[in-house]
């Protein structure tokens, strides 16, 4: 059985919650654990994931994935699940991860709705 962990990032860092899920998944000893990083300019983040127990890290790196929208990420993950016969997809607890997590649970998924969304502007401030 193979597992895939959605490795969410912010800026040039993987989120601790995602890495915690990855580390936990690696200790379960239930087959291969892979991670996936999705975004724009995120290739370098894959190296960090290896130190937290990922046997393999998939990277979806495309300028179209820059906006922090869930649906394109669902699209990527769904394709990977189909192509690599992944049995379990694990997510950390975050605003962004909530939606792909939910959509994975639905039995009739097709990624038809992501293109309707448009991130107009993203403000990062506290």
């Amino acid at each position: 059985m193979s597992s895939l962990v959605f490795l969410e990032h912010h800026g040039d860092e993987l989120l601790k919650g995602s890495l915690g899920v990855l580390a936990k998944a690696a200790t379960l000893g239930d087959g291969d654990v892979a991670g996936i990083v999705i975004g724009s300019g995120v290739r370098a983040l894959a190296d960090a994931a290896g130190t937290f127990g990922a046997a393999k890290v998939y990277v979806a790196d495309d300028p179209q994935l820059e906006a922090p929208l869930p649906q394109p990420r669902v699209d990527v993950i769904a394709q990977l699940v189909r192509d690599k016969e992944i049995h379990t997809v694990l997510f950390g607890n975050s605003v962004l991860a909530f939606t792909p997590k939910d959509l994975r649970l639905v039995d009739s998924y097709t990624p038809e709705n992501w293109e309707y969304l448009n991130a107009k502007d993203c403000h990062q401030h506290h």
Partner: peptide
């Protein structure tokens, strides 16, 4: 649970925004 809205949106093929 904080999951229902995304599942409903997916079934209706509608855009969804959370939080």
């Amino acid at each position: 649970g904080a999951v229902l809205w995304a599942a409903v949106a997916d079934r209706l093929r509608l855009p969804v925004v959370s939080q």
